[in-house]
Design a protein around this nucleic acid. Sequence first.
DNA 1: CGCGGTATTGACACTATTCAACATCAGTGG
DNA 2: CCACTGATGTTGAATAGTGTCAATACCGCG
Lengths: 241, 241
Amino acid sequence: MPSPLIRKLENFEKLSKTEKQAILAVSTMVRAIGRGKIILREGDEPRKAVLIVKGLACRYKLLPDGGRQITDILVPGDLCDGRLPLVHEMDHSVGTLSACDVADIDRKMLLAIAQKHPRITRALSWTSLAGEATLREWVANVGRRPADKRVAFLLCELIARINAIQRARTGGLQLPLGQIDLADAAALSIVHTNRILHRLREKKLVAVERRSITVADAEGLMEFAEFDPSYLYPNRKGART
Amino acid sequence: MPSPLIRKLENFEKLSKTEKQAILAVSTMVRAIGRGKIILREGDEPRKAVLIVKGLACRYKLLPDGGRQITDILVPGDLCDGRLPLVHEMDHSVGTLSACDVADIDRKMLLAIAQKHPRITRALSWTSLAGEATLREWVANVGRRPADKRVAFLLCELIARINAIQRARTGGLQLPLGQIDLADAAALSIVHTNRILHRLREKKLVAVERRSITVADAEGLMEFAEFDPSYLYPNRKGART
DNA sequence: CGCGGTATTGACACTATTCAACATCAGTGG
DNA sequence: CCACTGATGTTGAATAGTGTCAATACCGCG
């Protein structure tokens, strides 16, 4: 499988063979991580950039009362520590939601590549913009949507983002996502998340198994959630309805 | 008053006289805007960067059901359209929460300055990182905090950010903020926001007037909200508790 | 002076949380 | 290979927290 990072960047900027090669060259150090593991901890100073190659991960914050709020889900092609040219202290943690393959990327090498290939830099800037837009969408989602649409919205975003880096999708898409994690992302209790999922299942929009949710009717789910994916592509004009 | 943008950037990078001059030179076109006006509309392609010089503004999204979710509050020194080197379509709107003075900054000029002065570019990158961290904090705040701490948290962030660009603070800080706007930021109903404010007033933490909230006891409010401002300064190490 | 936006208050409905008990599954070690 | 065990999922009932509705008060502005 080609690097999902290339797939992701090419959604924003067409890359030359040389540029793709350069990206491939830095993302060779792939290692497997189990589910529920911590990749980066709040307060850490990340030494290397970590690329999600396979599986799902998330950014999250722990609250004083022990609660956890997931602020972003990472799909293959996503980099853990957002902006590259700067070292900093993590304001949040990153952990896996499923078993993952990740690639460790040396920050200096990544920076060197970015400086050599302006198109890559620009593509990375786009991903950063998309990331910010996604966060705003999450604030609105968590703050103002009713629970059922909120959960549906999250699932819609996930399949949209995964589809953007995986071609040739056929039928439903299975997400390796447990209900506890879904609850922490939707800012709902586990019990309520469970009930909402059952409701979505009754509407034939999703199928639920242990630690996996299959989107059965992506069209219907998007309609139900009133999902407009244009925020994921800040470079495309007029995509907005 | 010196440019609040300089104040803000100097929280991240010490700037030379030349650099300050350069910033001052591009932010001369100041104009006044009334309260409740739209500065940038979702879907627009912003032609110029807009700097808040005085007053409060906000980013917000409108939802299909007519609701409004504020995703970020802009204080003096903040730029409306986040990232500079890129033109794009707004995924959200920007509007004023109080009467404001804003400066229109030509994007090309700003870009030219950034290219000439790496320290300015770096400072802008820091502000961008801080902005992302703030958004994550908002997701956690709106998603997981009880209503009273949520409102308190918002007020704490506001005074922290305003204090960062205004020296010589004495006593309580008055925020020109109506309850409707506060409700849209906290993701609460107007009625409930009103009751929460009364509760905070009973605790002698704030004073409420028409379209203005005065933080009477900043220390107490921060303690009550469990507010840790370190996310606002991603460049400072070890600030985290 | 009247009008519209804002703030306030009470009653009520509803959504979501909590608690608790139980079912189920996957992994582990004996 | 099986039994144990801890994590996950499921369900019902009681409760707390918020939202909605509606009526009123208030203020600034035209």
